[in-house]
Write a protein that binds this DNA or RNA. Sequence first.
DNA 1: GATTGCTCTTGACAAATGTCAAGGGTTTTT
DNA 2: AAAAACCCTTGACATTTGTCAAGAGCAATC
Lengths: 192, 192
Amino acid sequence: MFYIFRKYLDDKITLTDQDYELIESVSLFKKLRKRQYLLQAGDVWRFNAFVCKGFLRNYYVDDNGQDHIMQFVPENNWTGDRESMDSGLPSKYNVDALEDSEILLLSKENFEMIRKTIPAFNDFVNESLKKNAVVLQERIHVNISLSAEEKYSDFISKYPSISNRVPLHMIASYLGVSAETLSRVRSQSTKR
Amino acid sequence: MFYIFRKYLDDKITLTDQDYELIESVSLFKKLRKRQYLLQAGDVWRFNAFVCKGFLRNYYVDDNGQDHIMQFVPENNWTGDRESMDSGLPSKYNVDALEDSEILLLSKENFEMIRKTIPAFNDFVNESLKKNAVVLQERIHVNISLSAEEKYSDFISKYPSISNRVPLHMIASYLGVSAETLSRVRSQSTKR
DNA sequence: GATTGCTCTTGACAAATGTCAAGGGTTTTT
DNA sequence: AAAAACCCTTGACATTTGTCAAGAGCAATC
């Protein structure tokens, strides 16, 4: 399974075989069946999780019992809960598998160790953090200014492969719109 | 003016006098009168901007001519447009002064140079990026799940000093709610 | 000190979105 | 193969939010 992560990194940075050996030596692997949890609200999160195969979602449940999806996590993406990892406090979020999945885990400590040991890896992490900030900002942009219909068409144009992979009500949850509204919005827009 | 930035950094990391000399030697300073622009949509952005004094806002204007505030930027905060800086493409955003302000600017190149030269500064930047991601995620959380009233009370509890400093319609713009709705929401909630 | 512009509020109404409930079609599980 | 669970749609209606317009109170400007 490590080869998938290696391929992912190879695409972004140049590392030596020794570097990879170091990384692999501290990597943990986890298989999740559909519906299994990687993180449950209330637990403290201590890892950087990379999805090698499968598909996860990161969400929280509000006081009314409603889900709100923070992130869809297909292969070759990272997930976890940085807030809990940094603070050491219990997480508000859940992460579970929407499909059978294979996850690579790097503990907080080992992740930092790798960053300190391998400068190129550190650069890569910085780069990723910056890109992530742009993506999050763009999502805020969408959320404070677009209608349900516009949010939906923005979503499917940005993430066509995700929209084919998850039920509509989860996209609704991600967008902050009710499932019924999204259903109507979509049938409206296909009429054109 | 540099001493303000120095005080800010001193609070977070330990640098030598030489480090500070290096940083100061590449720092640019800019004074803005209220209503002046630091960045206008259409221009390419090339700096990291630190607000030493004053108060800025970062916003964009949609096709209907409506403002949407992405960020309020009081003293001791950073702003700019990372997307434009990274891509080299024209910015979608405007940054202007809500009060007379003093800004410290570090060009993209010099900023990277400092990061490479001063490891502690690099660590600080990483830490800031991580914290920023948490803040952005929290804002998404709020936006996809709360009503106008809840968003407003969340805002004033998180940013009491900002709510005293900007007109209500700007908070509305930040939250993605109309100014009239926010006015009503607020008068409702003060009745209790 | 008059004028202008900005800010906030309020009313009346329109539009968007949410909620509840039911039903039909799938897929999954047993 | 039957049962259960899930997913989506649709209608009816309630609620929230937006839009337009007017006016009052303040502050900034000249």
